[in-house]
Amino acid sequence: MSFGQLPYDLAHLLGGAVLLLSFVLLYQRRIAAVINAFATQGALLALAAAWQGYVQGAAGLYVTAAIAFGAKAVLIPFALHRLVRRFNLQRGVDPALGIGVSMIAGVALAGFAMLVVLPATAGQRALAREDLALALSVVLLGGLMMITRRNLISQVIGLLSLENGLILAAVGVAGMPLVMELSTAALVLMLAVIAGVFALQMGESFQSLDTESLDTHRGEGE
C-alpha cells in the first residue's frame, strides 16, 4: 500500500487525527474541555481500529474498536465529568509548564519520535513505519501531559491518552493477537478505577486534586 490508496490514506489520516487530539489535550486549559477532547480521541481511536478491522479483515479489531469506544469515549469521560462536578473543578487547571512551551515541546517530541522510529524500522513497509511514528508521538505526548499538568484528572487523562497511543500502534500491525488487546483494555479500566478511587480519597482528604499538595505529606503515615 502507498499514498493515493484509500485504505492507507484513511488509516493514516485517522492516526493523524488522534495525534492532533493529543495536541488539543495539551492545548486545553479547562478541565471539562480536556475531558471532551479525550472522549473525541477515544472515538477516533475506535474509528481507526474499526477501519483497520475492515481493511485487514480481522474481526477481533471490531471488538477492540467497540471496547475503545465504550470505555474511552463514553464511560471514562462520563465518570470523569462526574468527578469534576463533585469536586467543583470547573475552573481552569494551571499547567506546571506554560501552554506555549509544552506545545513546542510536543512538536519536538513528535519530531523525535519520527527520528527514532524511521531508522529502527528500516526495511518495513512505509505504512507500518509512519503509523508507528504517529503512535509513538501520541505515547510521548501522553507522557508529556502527565509531566506538565498538576491536576490529578489531567494526569490520569495523560496516562489514558498514552495508552491510546499504544492501542493505535497495536491496531496498525496485522496479526496482533486479540488476547493482548483485551488484556490492555482491561488494564486501562483497572487503572481508571484505581485512579478514580484515588481521586475520591484525595479530594475528600485535601479538598483539592492538585497533586503538588501531596508533596508536603511525603513520608507521613503508618
Binding site: S2, F3, G100, G106, V107, A110, G111, L118, R129, E130
Partner: peptide
C-alpha cells in the same frame, strides 16, 4: 490568542515534518 495561533503554527510545522518523512519514504 497567541497560544491559539502558536498552536496553528506548530501544527503547520508538524505537517511539514510528516511530509518530509513520507516523501523520504515513498
Amino acid at each position: 490568542v497567541p497560544e491559539f495561533l502558536g498552536a496553528a503554527l506548530l501544527l503547520g510545522l508538524l505537517g511539514a515534518v510528516f511530509l518530509f518523512v513520507s516523501t523520504g519514504l515513498s
